[in-house]
Amino acid sequence: MRAVAVVRGVVALGILLAAAGRAHAIFPDEEARAGVRRLEERVGRIEADVGQRADRKALLDLLSELETVRREMAALRGQFEVLVNRIDGLDKRQKDLYVDLDTRLRKLEQAGAEKETAARQSAAETQAYETALAQFKANNFGSAIQGLQEFMKTYPTSPLAPSAQYWIGNAYYALRDYKSAIAEQQKVVATWPEHAKAPDAMLNIASSQAELGDVNGARNTLRLLVGKYPNSPAAEQAKQRLARR
């Protein structure tokens, strides 16, 4: 604003000088008037320019702010990418751990309760199951489903059938086909309610329901699970999930 005041002062000076010029008849009227006109035009331009400079300063500040925001956005994006990568790694590791744990548990279960069925379980049967499950571990969920379904058809009475059925459901879950996941896991719960996989299947149903946005359904399933299998590890997880919300 001080600039504008200065400009005004200069204009006044200019007019004063012009007037003085006329009084002393140093140059004719016409020329003086033209001189004043030129001066006024220039002052107008300068005034506009000073105004624009104020605008420009605001724009430049905005530009530098925009740059700061862009840099911050990029940094955030970078952190986000790193986090997603870390979560993907954890996901995979967790799945590997779970599959591994399940394999070991199954061996224990078989060793304890299935002495008489052990004879029935042919090597080919185990082989077929392991092959299909290997597909799951390799993230080939489509072929895992296919292999496990074939296994179910060939060995419907196998002691591995509940596990196979459970992994079919889980593979659909991994494929984000939550409706099929629920349908497949319901078969586990309905057909082998006493099997150790039944509470796991219910937990998976609840997760699928949550993914589909059916929060109430998910909570119902979790409550049912806690009521029905209070001593299962799955019930522990269900309790934690219920407490979280």
Partner: peptide, 25 residues
């Protein structure tokens, strides 16, 4: 003389704006 006057005015203009510049910088 006329030129001298215009020159003086221009100088005044420059001085006026230069003070703005100093302030900004």
């Amino acid at each position: 003389m006329r030129r001298a006057l215009l020159g003086l005015m221009a100088a005044a203009l420059v001085a006026g704006c230069a003070s703005t510049g100093t302030e900004e910088g």
